[in-house]
Write a protein that binds this DNA or RNA. Structure first.
Lengths: 336, 336
DNA sequence: AAGAGATTTGCACACGCGAGCAGATTTTTC
DNA sequence: GAAAAATCTGCTCGCGTGTGCAAATCTCTT
């Protein structure tokens, strides 16, 4: 066959068979040459790789997935595209996963708000694992949804889930909120208020509870909490205005502890627009998004250990790790 | 046993054969039942779908890809994860593509700065098309890189490329900059300066040139241009400071036209920090990222027609469209 | 009611590669 | 130098589905 000659032109459909023919070995020897720990003699491998290079061959991962029942594909599922921090997570995840040979399928579940459709779609592509990014996983889905059962591994990333069928890889939120509380206490703040995201029944509000518990232990004082309608700065502005309107004179909080940086930025905007006593109220965030460092905001916030979390994810994918992980992050002190 | 084994055990390996047996038909009839326009009698389809439902069957897209040589997979390739606008693009792209049956592989090429590695990785997954998001495609890659030749379609999305082997789907930047110019002219601005991104030799700076050409025609005046070191607001701050430092007294620009919103936000930050005469200088952006609407910035900017662009991408993927497209966007007037 | 036409169903083959084993080759051992 | 061990190579079978065609069934006309 001079199929090889054809392919050299088109550079399409170059298969292991072609390389095998060109190198004078069998197809399986070609496969071994491309395997890290393949049982193959150095000179044969050399010969094969040279032929592959010449023909422009690269193994077909699709066919390999079908044959081996391991796709080396991970579905990244998320529904919150308003938060710039998602971009940081996606950047890190894709870079680190691809560098280790894992492909990443980005799935948007903001339509349905129900993970089952996203999981079904992912499972049809035979992903080795589904990773919910910054998204809680509703327990009921596992019982009812078709897709959920078909996915081999289910990981909740950068968020807490107590679902027993799920693996959590997250920042240690409890520790984080303690550090923020200690920091505020040391700086002399006395009456914090918490600005949280939407108060959905199912969502366990880890950060709020952690902060309130710790502050109670620290000062004996309760922390009033207000829920924004959404994780976006417009909602935060409305919420902070509501907080300020509701406060009796002389009972203003002296610091607004926000569940993440987006809400914190909204809070800063609201306080600045309001002026007067409000302008003196401090704000803390969470995530350390790039804009948190802007002169206008200069937020004290908490940086999640994303790289470390990604590495734990690799451990989970390779089967080395099979339990929940909480990694400590870093307090970033900027403003008051 | 562990949780993973449980999941995998349940409904593993329900294939078309199983459904066929359960429904009393052949495997190919099952396939037809799942095809939109399959030649199959309604009652047979009904019977098959019922059996599939009962068994929890969903077609294996991986095997289908291998057999049909169409993966219905698209690689989304990008390298600029600093710009929140990427998140908007990703959200829209993934939602619209998945809704039409296209899977999206997110590839991060920020490491190499060279598209060839990303393209090779994508091609090994047999993607039907690679979409460079907001990223220019270096012509030389097509000639030298292995990956580039293996990808069936190459689309440059939300950015201009004059590469003949590439399809461009973009906002009509030329029109956009004309609208911005007209707007500024009508408002009485007389001496704009342009703040652009990095000045790489290969990059054709579409927006800059368009604005300068138009302004020249409008007023006969030249527009001084300054390049930031990167597409991030810190670089923009430095650049704007440099512009102000370099300006002779009385020759300050009255408006800074920025290549995108991130640079514009940096510009606003710099002007605000500077105070005095600088604080009166207006700023325009591009992209209309969510934060552009924040009270602190309140940017006049230009919204790209992302949904329309995604629909044109679908046309390209399905083969209905095979030429460059430039879609007009919308001027968003906010600040001065 | 028979035959033409339309519709519906079944089948051989292919897609590109991996797992696991058997045969071939080389290296080591006594 | 021959046998045992270690290493290397080739091969059968299967992964789950699409394509194109032939066979079977149904519908309608005369």
């Amino acid at each position: 066959m001079d199929r090889i000659a054809e392919n050299a032109d088109q550079s399409r459909g170059v298969t292991a068979d072609d390389v095998a023919a060109a190198a004078g070995v069998s197809r399986w020897t070609v496969a071994r040459a491309f395997k890290k720990r393949g049982a193959i003699s150095p000179k044969t491998r050399q010969k094969v790789l040279a032929a592959a290079e010449r023909l422009g061959y690269a193994p077909d991962l699709l066919a390999a997935s079908l044959a081996s029942d391991r796709s080396h594909l991970v579905a990244l599922i998320t529904n919150d595209f308003n938060n710039p921090h998602k971009l940081v997570l996606l950047e890190r995840l894709t870079r680190i996963l691809w560098s280790q040979g894992w492909g990443t399928l980005l799935v948007n579940m903001s339509e349905s708000e129900d993970a089952s459709a996203a999981l079904l779609a992912a499972s049809q592509r035979r992903v080795d694992a589904a990773v919910m990014i910054g998204t809680r996983f509703d327990d009921r889905v596992l019982d009812t949804a078709l897709g959920a059962r078909r996915v081999k591994k289910l990981v909740v990333f950068a968020r807490y889930s107590n679902n027993p069928n799920t693996l959590t890889i997250s920042c240690d939120d409890r520790l984080a909120m303690r550090e923020i509380g200690d920091h505020l206490f040391a700086r002399g703040y006395a009456s914090p208020a918490f600005i949280a995201g939407p108060d959905t029944q199912s969502a366990k509000l880890h950060r709020v509870d952690s902060f309130r518990d710790h502050w109670l232990g620290l000062t004996g004082g309760a922390v009033p909490t207000r829920h924004a309608a959404g994780y976006d700065f417009h909602s935060a502005i409305d919420t902070v205005n509501a907080v300020l309107d509701a406060a009796l004179p002389g009972t203003l909080p002296d610091v607004l502890v926000c569940e993440n940086d987006i809400l914190a930025i909204g809070a800063k905007e609201a306080l600045r627009a309001r002026g007067g006593a409000a302008a003196g109220i401090a704000v803390t965030g969470f995530d350390d998004i790039p804009l948190a460092a802007a002169p206008s905001y200069h937020l004290t916030t908490y940086r999640q250990p994303i790289t470390a979390m990604c590495e734990r994810l690799l451990d989970v994918l390779s089967g080395r790790l099979n339990e929940d992980v909480f990694v400590p992050g870093t307090l970033i002190v900027r403003g008051g």
